[in-house]
Structure formats: C-alpha cells, structure tokens
C-alpha cells in the first residue's frame, strides 16, 4: 500500500497554487490528506501532480464577523478549539467531534472534508444546513458556489478540475438559536450510517421563526428537509413538530449497501432527526451566543 509516483508542487502563494492546478492534467490538490492519502496508498487515486496547499499562505483563518468565514485550509482541530466559533456556531463543534479522531482532526481541514464530500461526512452536512457559500478560485477568476449547488452526486462536486476551494462562509444564526446534531456510527469517529442536524430560531410567541434540517448518509449527498422547513414556519415548538420532522426525514430516499439497508437508514433518519429536534428545542434561548 504505497502511493504511485507523482510530481510534487508546494506553492506558497495562492496565485501559484491556482496556476499549478490549472496548468496540469490529472492534478489533485492536497489539503489535510486524511482522505486523499489513504486513497493514494490504496492506489484508488493516482494523480500525476500533487499540489500541496499546506504551505499556501492565507488559506487558514477563522473570522467570526457578521458572516462566519473559514479558510478552506483551516484545520478541523482549530475549528474545534475556537471559542469564538463555539459561541457563534455551537453546532459546528458538536458535529466536528464526530469527525474521525484527534489525530485526523489535527491534520484534516474544513475545506478538504467538504471537497471530499463523503455522503455521511459531517462538514458538508453542516455547511448545507447553513446554506454556506463556497469560494472557488481558478486562473479564470473567483466563483461563488452555494452549498446546495456544490454537491452534484456521490463524492462529486461542482468544482472544475482547475478550481480550488479557498473559503467557506455563511450567515450566523440569531442569538439563542436552538441547535442539535445527532448521528449514529457503529464506533466513535467512524463514518456515520446516518446523521441529522437542526437549527431553529423561535419568535417571542414560541413559534418557529426559522428552521433548517439536514440529513446525511441516506443517499449520495446530504439533503435538506426543505418542504418540511417551509411548512414548519409559524408552528408552535411542540412535540408534534418533532414527530412531523422525524416523519418527514424517514420518508426520504435512501440507498442500501452491503452493510445497511435503505429501510434502516430511513429509520435512523427519523430517529436522529427527532433527537436533533429535541436537542434544538431544549437549547433555544440557552445557546451560548454572546
């Protein structure tokens, strides 16, 4: 299990990195390498050119301004340990603690996880939940891609071969919003069989002002429960709403594989959505956003 040969490039400036990925056929950008390098060791991935982004300046940052901005090369660990983010986007850390293990989060990046787009990965689901906007750069210019247009299919993104993801940004949810992220994996840190994330803002009457629900692991990409979200607006925060959300989640399309059936995944989608809704309800008004 040794990687095949490749030409290694280690640019230090984004412009150089973009030029390199644009100039070479069969080139891959190397972020944290926690998914790409195993694929290379198995020789499932055999790039001729590897553009290492780890030395490129300006790609690793956390900006908790009006919008949350994350550099694509920000290590998952730095997100995990950022108290600003913990206050502004508490669901991010809750989800992140399920991403691999300490050693992989030390190296793995937010952008790498999003670009790898594993169907049950937490970061793409969280970004979809936040309607994040991705910034891609190529020699042709800068392009903004909404997260719901980013995932095209199974581990397939809408990034062009000559584009690099540079930044992820999204609007923060209001102070005191409720949040919950639940997933089920056989073991800690494994890819989830299924996951669910919920964000809720309530108005003063205790009714839903805004809600977002994402389910991961069911099919090729994470999905939002958009129809339910639209219908839920203005409804009271009550157990019935939780049950309806769970029912909606368990009606989604799902895939079977050698390990788990579609039925089971759908069942989990319902269970986990209910749990995430419940967590979100409980946390409304007590979220630590200051």
């Amino acid at each position: 299990m040794k990687p095949g040969p490749f030409t290694y490039h280690d640019p230090t400036e984004l412009a150089d990195a973009v030029a390199l990925i644009g100039a070479h056929e069969n080139a891959r950008a190397l972020a944290g390498g926690q998914s790409l390098v195993p694929m290379m060791n198995f020789r499932y991935a055999m790039p001729d050119h590897l553009i290492d982004l780890n030395g490129v300046s300006g790609l690793s940052f956390i900006d908790c301004g009006e919008r949350i901005r994350l550099g694509a090369m920000t290590r998952q660990r730095d997100v995990e340990f950022s108290s600003d983010l913990q206050h502004a986007v508490p669901i991010l850390r809750e989800a992140l603690l399920n991403v691999g293990h300490r050693q992989t989060r030390n190296r793995g990046t937010i952008g790498g996880s999003i670009c790898n787009l594993d169907p049950s990965a937490e970061m793409p689901a969280i970004m979809l939940l936040h309607d994040a906007e991705l910034t891609a750069q190529s020699t042709r210019g800068v392009r903004k891609i909404p997260m719901n247009k980013f995932a095209l299919g199974f581990m397939t993104t809408s990034l062009e071969p000559d584009e690099l993801l540079t930044e992820i940004s999204f609007a923060r949810w209001g102070k005191g919003h409720g949040y919950g992220f639940h997933e089920y994996a056989r073991r800690h840190g494994d890819f989830a069989i299924c996951s669910a994330g919920v964000l809720i803002e309530a108005d003063s009457r205790g009714e839903v002002a805004r809600i977002a629900i994402v389910v991961g692991g069911l099919g090729a990409t994470p999905v939002r429960l958009s129809a339910f979200e639209a219908a839920a607006k203005g409804h009271r925060l009550a157990d019935e709403l939780i049950a309806e959300a769970a029912a909606a989640a368990s009606r989604m399309d799902a895939l079977s594989d050698a390990h788990f059936s579609a039925d089971y995944r759908r069942h989990l989608a319902g269970v986990l959505t209910r749990r995430a809704m419940k967590s979100a309800f409980e946390r409304i008004g007590v979220a630590a956003y200051v």
Binding site: G33, Q34, V37, P38, N41, R77, Q103, T104, N106, R107
Partner: peptide, 8 residues
C-alpha cells in the same frame, strides 16, 4: 500535534 505518519 499528533497525526498519522502514514497519511503525510
């Protein structure tokens, strides 16, 4: 920082 030396 701890990391996998097989993935670097």
């Amino acid at each position: 920082r701890s990391l996998r030396s097989c993935l670097m």
